[in-house]
Amino acid sequence: MRAEPFAFAAGDWRAEIFAALKKQQVRQMAYVPDAGHASLIRACHADGAIDCTVLTTEEEGVALLAGAELGGQRGVMLMQSSGVGNCVNMFSLLKSCGFPFVTLVTMRGEWGEFNPWQMPMGQATEETFKRSGFVVYRADTGEDAAAMTGSAMRLAYDSNCPVAVLLSQRLIGAKDF
């Protein structure tokens, strides 16, 4: 598939996240789409050095990036908080083998949520990660999000642990219907 050229809009803090991923030599990006990740997903697709894989469910991404790491490539998964619960048993792959893993999670079910169906998983996201052995960061500003992404990559790939960066709903903006 030929990549469409892409440029971030002025002031889009995902540009800094993307720069951090490039600096850390991310070669595979797996995702279940979310509106909050849309520009970052487009930027990765437009980048010739990042192999993007759209998933049918988030747990595939955990296994996929473990496979990438076996082959010597760094990866990142983009998902929404509702997808975290889908991954729980697959997270045991990371813990059992010491795989590094980084995921950036757009949060729902917290700040000004409109849809009550988002609340249970949104409220359980951080604890789910912690109980699965993750280091968890929470970003409330774009500046933090980029810095935490860089730090998460280092923690994961230098210190062999799974790391989640939660991009708060206050940062992303509550969805209006």
Partner: peptide, 16 residues
């Protein structure tokens, strides 16, 4: 373990 993940893991490895 990781039941259901073998094929996806293969994809990540094949791409790398």
């Amino acid at each position: 373990g990781a039941m259901g993940g073998a094929a996806a893991m293969g994809l990540g490895l094949a791409q790398a």
